[in-house]
Each structure stands twice: as structure tokens, then as C-alpha cells.
Amino acid sequence: MSTEPRTVTVNVLVTKALEIDEPDWCVDPHTGANFRPDIAHNGPEIAASFETRIGTVDYLRAWISHAPYAALAPEPLPVIAVEVDAEAVSLDPDGVRAFTATTRAHLDALDRLADEADRIRGGGQG
């Protein structure tokens, strides 16, 4: 048996603060990122809201997002994240017309968001 001390290599998780560039449009507090690939910059959220007799339904939420260190597919430029939350409501014909009017207004807001993303990316139609 050898009298020399033995060594072993053990992988450990080491954490430290990481300073990154923050885009001027980002409003994310960055509290949920434990690893570099978790870092995402997120802009202000827009959502279509529609009042029903049982309460407010938010749908078609969207925001500008950029995950520069994403593990599987790093995003070289900001994208637009769109979240569709399926919630069924019953509407009469006037309610459907109000819903479609609200949706049309929100689609215009989505177009403005696309223009802003083009501006941030440095080109496009914005």
C-alpha cells in the first residue's frame, strides 16, 4: 500500500455574481436565473383583456424577449414571446362583437411590438 496521499477530482457547483449588459427595453428583475443559460431579458408585457360577467379574461400575452445564453438554441437577436392562455367563456352575439373588437385592437398592439423588436434588432420595417 502506498504512503502517498490520494487525490480525487470532484465536480462542484460554484456560484458567483455575473455582470451582463442590460438592454434599455428590459424590465425583468432577473431573479429566477440560477445558471447562465437561464438568463433572459424580457420587455414590458402586453395582453388583451376582456370583461365577462364572471370576471376579466387575459389572453394573447406578449413581450419582447432575448435569451443570449440559452443552452439549446441561443437567440442572437430578440424575439417576441406570445403566450396564449386558453380559457373558455360563453358570449352572446354582442359579446362576441366586443371580443373581436378587443382582439383587433390587441393585434394592432402586437404589430407595434413587432415594429419595436425590429428597431431593437437594428432593421426591418420599424
Rank of each mutant, 00 (worst) to 15 (best):
V79T: 14
A86T: 13
E87V: 04
A73E: 11
A62W: 05
A70K: 06
P74Q: 06
E75L: 07
A81P: 00
D85F: 10
R61L: 06
L72E: 12
P93I: 06
P76S: 01
I80A: 10
P76W: 06
P93R: 06
E83V: 04
D85P: 00
R61I: 13
G95H: 07
L60C: 05
V79H: 04
A88Y: 10
S90D: 05
A71S: 12
A73P: 00
A81F: 08
L72F: 11
D58N: 14
G95E: 03
V79S: 08
P68V: 10
A86C: 12
E87N: 08
A62L: 09
A88N: 14
D58Q: 09
H66M: 12
D92V: 10
P76E: 04
E83A: 11
L72H: 11
Y69M: 02
E75P: 02
R97W: 13
G95L: 08
F99D: 07
E87M: 03
A98Y: 10
P68L: 10
E83T: 00
A71N: 11
A81R: 10
R97E: 13
L60H: 03
D94S: 14
L77F: 06
V84N: 10
A73V: 04
H66I: 02
E75Q: 15
A98D: 15
Y69F: 00
V82C: 00
A86L: 15
A81E: 08
I64M: 08
W63D: 03
L91T: 04
D58V: 01
D94M: 09
P68W: 01
R61N: 10
A67P: 05
H66F: 01
S65V: 15
V79I: 12
I80T: 06
P93S: 09
P74I: 08
E75T: 11
A71L: 06
A81D: 12
H66V: 04
A86H: 09
D85A: 05
G95M: 05
V82H: 01
F99C: 07
P93D: 04
